[in-house]
């Protein structure tokens, strides 16, 4: 299981682009939360299951979006 945490500007357009990429990844999205703390950004947290290579693919593709201001990937165990 992996957790991907991404910060992006508070815009549904950017969020839509994030989802568009995620739906093409060969991973299972178990949970997705979108929160905002400062009213200017969204914090998107994805909990996913998949092969490490596929998770890396997803993170690399998400990180190509200019709207993704930062992204982190953590292994949260089986």
């Amino acid at each position: 299981m992996w957790r991907i945490s991404a910060i992006l500007p508070k815009s549904l357009d950017g969020l839509g682009r994030l989802v568009a990429i995620t739906r093409r990844a060969k991973v299972e999205v178990l949970k997705m939360t979108v929160t905002t703390n400062d009213m200017r950004t969204y914090n998107v947290v994805l909990e996913i299951r998949g092969e490490p290579d596929e998770v890396n693919w997803l993170v690399a593709k998400l990180d190509k979006l200019p709207e993704i201001l930062s992204i982190e990937q953590i292994n949260i165990g089986p």
């Binding site: 500007p9 200019p66 709207e67």
Partner: peptide, 8 residues
């Protein structure tokens, strides 16, 4: 426009 250009 808030984007991260540096990553490119």
């Amino acid at each position: 426009i808030p984007v991260n250009r540096e990553k490119f």
